[in-house]
Nucleic acid binder design. Structure first.
Length: 583
RNA sequence: GCUCCAGUAGCUCAGGGGAUAGAGCAUUGGUUUCCUAAACCAAGUGUCGCAGGUUCGAAUCCUGCCUGGAGCGCCA
């Protein structure tokens, strides 16, 4: 699903300004006005208050190096600053800020540029010609998508969209395992549920899958096949369960606008022998040994393993890469642990040549992810392209008045639970799920307040943002009905407020870049909300089709709203939300 | 015990060296003849967990501590 494809038109003004300031400093040094020193990177940033320009540079950071007062340094910079196409006023403010304002003319031109380019206007070129992969969700097909997977799915897909907007060619991948113990138990659980449906006394052991969804599948099997499956082994039921699960998973994800390009099966690493070649290479590099316990084990650990009576296992000396202990690659019974295929999978990823490979995981995989990176180093590879977004826990909660506190919503057999993606969507909406799951820093725990999202949806940021788009659409629709267009508008008739909106919109490029370089896609959600906050007061005040608005002014304003519509359309697309024409 | 994350307004959370710390929700009062109320305008609240340190400047970086959460398997 390509987002914002095409050639970039958006200039990242902060970068232009930073480069200009550096050049001014260099020039001042050459002229002997400043001593020689390495110019530190001091970023320009948008100031917090009005009247301080659009971008501010604190020259205070240079005072020590330059052995001059910040104000003097600021003056030297401003004197030698190259001409900037976008700059209006450039002012110096105590204690040593350089405040640069974007010229109104430049802002007006951007409206034309946005209309000419459409959402492509906001595309960046930092990922041009590069390939990125986002691996996310990666839930084994043993049950429905839970609320935890949902956060993972939303963050991963948003990351993918942001990377696309930054110019990367992005692949969305889903890694899964359908071979392990869990899947065997799943098959056996379904088999028992099937027998139960036939009226047999077939109790489900406690370690089997208790979920009601297997009963549903069993019921369907009876409806379709009657008793004819009674003789089938658990293998058969595993296959059935897996197929149904994946169908459900894909359908659930599609409901929130998420689709993977590739599904990578862990089993293929066994079939192709890749896990063994990984192990061989690690052994050749001297990182593998056979033992009943790891080399650094203390007396307690040794006593513990001894009591279990293990035969020797195959260990990876990960401690030599900084791990706190070594890890088992192949258990004493000859079966590999999860870690070995995981290393093989990531080797395969690196060999596929992605410039960036983002992995979205819960924090419970923190240690595992470290071990995988150690493993890649042991293979002589550089794991640098691989980055992991760790998500803190998420749970559905609701207010409990008796407790006077929030209470986790647990998966329950009865209707009215909210613990799966389907439940969340049913009770709220796909857009609400996407926004609320995205609008939180990955390393904050998230309590998804079901009642708030449901009950107060009228006061929801989701609708606040979408309504900005809807309002633009309303104007454009009405204008079209009246046969009114703003194509030959004089944008000089626009007011300060409209230009303020354009100013804010121009920050989007920086937000996208920050979101992908810091791996914090939630930034786009907050930006969207802020931008809507700038929009609504304007909409309230600046009318287009009103008897008191002169025709020429109306044309200019119509053009402005057309541009605003483009901006919100792009933002909603980036967040995977719908852009409704009406609400 | 060790590692990671969080602690900011009544609640949910942004901000992660720069100017007077923000938003939503909740509370209070006001706003619609003509695209508009899922909106707008106005009002109030803070020992940025605690204590030191670094810096011209710290909510932000460092150290220690307190509280809450997650992880530390021959599980996946």
């Amino acid at each position: 699903m390509p987002v914002c494809r095409g050639k970039s038109a958006l200039e990242q003004l902060n970068k232009t300004l930073e480069a200009a300031i550096e050049s001014a400093l260099r020039s001042a040094q050459q002229a002997g006005e400043l001593p020689q020193f390495e110019i530190p990177r001091i970023p320009v940033s948008p100031p917090k208050r009005a009247g301080q320009g659009d971008w501010a540079y604190p020259a205070m950071g240079l005072a020590r190096l330059a052995r001059k007062s910040p104000l003097d340094i600021a003056r030297l910079i401003v004197d030698r600053l190259p001409k900037l196409g976008f700059a209006g006023k450039i002012e110096i403010a105590p204690p040593g800020f350089i405040n640069c304002t974007i010229a109104d003319d430049y802002l007006r031109k951007q409206i034309d540029a946005m209309l000419a380019a459409g959402t492509v206007y906001f595309r960046l070129d930092i990922g041009e010609g590069k390939r990125a992969q986002v691996e996310f969700v990666s839930a084994n097909p043993s049950g429905p998508i839970t609320i935890g997977h949902t956060r993972n799915a939303v963050v991963g897909d948003a990351m993918a969209r942001l990377l696309e907007a930054a110019g990367y060619a992005v692949q969305r991948e889903y890694y899964y395992n359908n071979a392990g113990n869990q899947m065997i138990i799943l098959g056996k659980s379904l088999q028992l549920r099937y027998w139960q449906q036939l009226g047999d006394d077939a109790p489900l052991p406690a370690d089997h899958y208790q979920g009601e969804y297997l009963v549903d599948i069993a019921r369907d099997l009876v409806a379709e096949h009657g008793e004819s499956l009674r003789g089938q082994s658990w293998h058969f039921f595993k296959e059935v369960a897996e197929q149904v699960m994946f169908r459900w998973i894909k359908r659930s994800l599609a409901a929130i606008n998420i689709q993977h390009d590739a599904f990578f099966n862990e089993t293929s690493l066994f079939d192709s022998g890749q896990i063994w070649s990984v192990l061989d290479t690690m052994r050749e590099h001297g990182h593998i040994y056979q033992a009943t316990h790891w080399e650094g084990a203390d007396a307690d650990e040794i006593a513990d393993v001894t009591s279990k009576g293990y035969e020797p296992a195959t260990w990876f000396r990960s401690s030599s890469f900084g791990d706190e202990k070594d890890r088992v690659m192949v258990k004493s019974d000859g079966v590999p642990t999860y870690t070995l295929p995981d290393i093989a999978y990531h080797r395969d990823k690196l060999e596929r040549g992605f410039d960036i490979a983002v992995n979205v995981l819960g924090t419970d995989h923190f240690s595992q992810a470290q071990v995988v990176k150690h493993g890649l180093r042991a293979l002589g590879m550089d794991p640098a392209p691989i980055d992991v977004i760790f998500l803190q826990m998420v749970r559905a909660v609701r207010w409990n008045a008796e407790l006077g506190d929030f209470e986790a919503v647990k998966q329950s057999k009865r209707a009215g639970d909210f613990d799966t993606l389907d439940d969340l969507v049913a009770m709220t909406s796909a857009d609400a799920v996407r926004y609320h799951m995205l609008a939180r820093s990955p390393n904050s725990q998230l309590d998804f307040d079901v009642d708030q999202v449901v009950k107060q949806s009228n006061e929801n940021p989701v609708y606040y943002i979408q309504n900005a788009y809807v309002r633009c659409a309303g104007i454009l629709r009405e204008a079209a009905d009246r046969g009114f267009d703003g194509d030959d508008a004089d944008l000089n008739l626009l007011g300060k407020e409209e230009l303020k909106f354009i100013r804010k919109a121009l920050e989007m490029g920086n937000v996208i870049e920050q979101a992908i370089t810091l791996y914090e896609p939630h930034k786009i959600a907050f930006f969207a909300h802020e931008l809507a906050g700038v929009f609504h007061p304007i909409y309230d005040e600046v009318r287009v089709l009103h008897s008191e608005v002169p025709a020429e002014t109306a044309k200019a304003r119509l053009r402005f709203y057309r541009a605003a519509s483009t901006v919100f359309g792009c933002l909603l697309q980036l967040m995977g939300m719908s852009a409704p024409e009406r609400m």
